[in-house]
Design a protein around this nucleic acid. Structure first.
Length: 384
DNA sequence: TCCTCTAACACTTTTGAATCGC
DNA sequence: AGCGATTCAAAAGTGTTAGAGG
């Protein structure tokens, strides 16, 4: 049952993702959003530790990935509102490539180092409280502290697999469902935050990031104290070790670099909403525009029941972006409105199923239907 | 030679079982 | 017996860095 569900969830997302890949490679310009807009649903998500994320984002966040899995820092922590108190929800996170490039750290900055590696198996982390009623999720902020990132494509622990030296951002899904097995029927709300973009690395490249992590991560306290590390003691009785030099150097140069990003809010749109014409996409920094375009392009072009809008607002960095995906169209589900648009450019399933995804698909429904949901697989083949 | 990745390291924090007192 | 508070050892998690490997 679970396997079947995973396959279905994976399948329904493959085509759009493949489509977005092609959009990316073609560098298609951003399509204009349509004019109609109205609030349909009030589900909201806020990034809890946004200031910390912004601090890291301003110097380009790096996340360590290891063979056995490494937690994120800053970790993903969000708060939810607007849920139905007695309805059950499943909350999930996956990681989305920001663009189609690989990066390298060169002379104090990140440079493009070529085309991205083929994407590793896509996995989704389900919040351990899932499923839980809306009242539970709204009671307090929820953290994804135990989410781990790995570069081991053969990982058996369900960690999220990423490529080193590639950029990603976490995408949060709120799905109304009574259990993990009924996720398929629930409407989706998808949120992401521009400041959570990070570069996956196996060792820190930017010493400013190291300094910031040591300052804020309690587990790194031992290093913050200085001189407690064996190698530090051995080499650095006079603060002469490379690490000590690096930290010392950073102490003087970090604060000024931690400038806050401009504030924006991305309004939640729902399945029936249309984004306002000319809506700003400024929340993403220039380097993120490509992926942003990737998102909006594919979604816009498809114009199913998922749309998104980014609206600058006065709320200080209360940024989020949301997509609500309509209820999936199964024969047993509710009647589908006739006005819902079919895929204007249905990516044929055969040509778009990415070969690197090891999932098998036995889903009885057409790929064009299953393509309507997302640009990126929502579930891993083995996330549970 | 350069770049990336891995593993071992010393230390701190977290976790959870055991114990105690009410 | 049940519950909450406290203690403590084990497990988990941290950044650093030498060395391996491509």
């Amino acid at each position: 049952m679970a396997h079947y569900l995973l396959e279905w969830l994976h399948l329904r997302t493959l085509s759009l993702r493949a489509h977005s890949d092609s959009v990316l490679s073609m560098n298609v310009p951003l399509t204009q959003p349509t004019n109609e807009s109205h609030q349909h649903n009030s589900i909201r998500m806020n990034l809890e530790n946004a200031d910390l994320w912004k601090s890291f984002h301003s110097i380009e966040t790096e996340m360590i990935i290891t063979k056995h899995g490494r937690r994120m820092f800053p970790h993903c922590s969000v708060s939810l509102s607007g849920l139905q108190p007695f309805a059950n929800y499943v909350i999930m996170v996956d990681m989305i490539p920001v663009d189609g490039y690989k990066y390298k750290w060169k002379k104090e900055q990140w440079d493009v180092a070529g085309k991205a590696e083929p994407q590793p198996p896509c996995r989704t982390y389900v919040h351990p409280d899932s499923p839980a009623p809306g009242s539970h999720w709204m009671k307090q902020s929820l953290t994804f502290l135990k989410l781990k990132l790995t570069n081991n494509t053969l990982d058996q622990h369900g960690h999220i697999i990423l490529h080193s030296m590639h950029r990603y951002y976490p995408r949060f899904h709120v799905i109304q469902a009574d259990s993990l097995y009924t996720v398929r029927w629930g409407p989706f709300h998808t949120f992401s935050f521009p400041e959570t973009t990070f570069t996956a690395v196996t060792a820190y490249q930017n010493p400013k990031i190291t300094k910031l992590k040591i300052d804020h991560n309690p587990f790194a306290k031992g290093f913050r104290e200085g001189g407690t590390h064996k190698r530090c003691r051995a080499n650095d009785s006079s603060s002469g070790s490379p690490s000590a030099k690096r930290v010392k150097k950073n102490l003087s140069e970090t604060p000024q670099s931690l400038q806050m990003m401009p504030s924006h809010t991305w309004k939640v749109l729902t399945s029936t909403e249309k984004p306002q014409k000319g809506a700003s996409i400024t929340p993403w920094s220039q380097e993120q525009d490509l992926s942003e375009r990737l998102h909006t392009d594919s979604i816009d072009e498809y114009d199913y029941s998922c749309e998104e809008q980014m609206v600058p607002a006065s709320v200080p960095y209360n940024s989020y972006r949301s997509i609500e995906y309509g209820r999936y169209h199964y024969p047993t589900s509710e009647v589908e409105p006739a006005h819902e648009q079919p895929a204007p450019h249905p990516p044929t399933s055969a040509e778009h199923v990415a070969p690197q995804h090891a999932c098998h698909h036995h889903h009885p429904y057409t790929h064009s239907n299953t393509a309507d949901w997302s640009q990126y697989p929502l579930f891993s083949y083995s996330c549970w």
